[in-house]
């Protein structure tokens, strides 16, 4: 631990203001998502806790605001802040879970593709090329409207979109790693292909994935928000940030801006923070820039 704290990585991090800012943002959001429900007084999805009388209250600093509802309420009297915190949990879960799924699947396919080459490689990479020639939003939209919505479906759709980046990154690093003599040494040592992939190739292709994953979580949260906003995302019983924006959007033009603006701002800062941190990681871990 002492070694880590005095390392060059930590030193560079502490002198990189955007990186510190980004990670503070991410940490703050993570804290809210994990402990948030303990901090707000209302569970917006427990009907018994809702006061219909309090619907469409503006934020506390505006005329007519109520100190119980810091950021105002929506049409059913739900506290916007509480909705955001509960919604952020769902958004973050979807972003991270989809990242994990596409990371596992993409890495496995990329390793196979890069290590064995030949026909397998050609097939996997052509599928990836086709995949990349469509906007990822379009693919997700198509899958969601064809097979129905729900969190499980969103994960499948996002994984279908996201594995390509991992597969290509891993294949590229695998191709350069297997040229190196330590892979030949492992073969001379008598290791089987699976052992070589697991013990030698995999640990050496992981670093760039950290960067990809960070950025990926951000973009998954955005895609999910867009899908939900378009009405093909999460079900209404498990509203994510995107769905909150959509619901607020319906009443936006009647002057009730807070129900959609605050979830929207929340998404923006969250993704902004993730990307700032991701950029720092990319600069630090990308050996080509060093």
């Amino acid at each position: 631990m002492q070694r880590l704290l005095s390392s060059e990585f930590v030193h560079n991090y502490r002198h990189n203001i955007p990186a510190v800012l980004g990670s503070l943002l991410v940490l703050a959001f993570a804290f809210l998502a994990i402990f948030g429900p303990l901090l707000v007084w209302q569970d917006p999805y427990d009907v018994s806790q809702l006061e219909l009388m309090d619907s469409f209250k503006p934020p506390v600093w505006l005329e007519g605001g109520h100190p119980r509802y810091l950021l105002g309420t929506d049409g059913q009297g739900r506290d916007v802040l509480a909705s955001i915190i509960y919604g952020a949990r769902i958004s973050a879960f979807i972003g991270i879970a989809a990242m994990a799924c596409s990371c596992v699947i993409g890495t496995i396919l990329g390793l196979i593709s890069g290590y064995y080459g030949g026909m397998l490689d050609a097939v996997i990479m052509r599928v990836a090329d086709i995949q990349l020639s469509f906007p990822s939003m379009l693919i997700a939209l198509f899958l969601m409207s064809a097979f129905g919505n729900g969190i499980g479906m969103i994960l499948i759709a996002l994984t279908a979109v996201g594995w390509v980046v991992y597969a290509r990154t891993v294949r590229g690093s695998t191709l350069s790693e297997i040229q190196k003599e330590y892979i030949q040494a492992a073969r001379v040592a008598g290791l089987s292909d699976t052992e070589i992939i697991r013990r030698h190739v995999l640990p050496n292709v992981l670093t760039p994935l950290i960067v990809v994953s960070t950025i990926q979580v951000g973009s998954f949260i955005l895609i999910e928000a867009s899908l939900s906003f378009l009405g093909v995302g999460v079900p209404i019983t498990e509203p994510s940030l995107g769905l909150l924006v959509k619901e607020g959007f319906d009443v936006l033009f009647s002057g009730i801006w807070w129900t959609s603006a605050f979830p929207g701002l929340f998404i923006m800062f969250l993704v902004f923070g993730i990307n700032l941190f991701g950029d720092f990681l990319r600069d630090e871990l990308n050996p080509r820039l060093r």
Binding site: K180, E181, Y182, Q184, A185, A186, R187, V188, A189, G190, S192, D193, R199, H200, P203, N204
Partner: peptide, 26 residues
Amino acid sequence: QKELRPVRRELQMIFQDPYASLNPRQ
């Protein structure tokens, strides 16, 4: 490769590049 495993007991190799021939993560 599998049938070669017992042969590896008799034959080993030393490589040229001391920087590339050791797995940096081991």
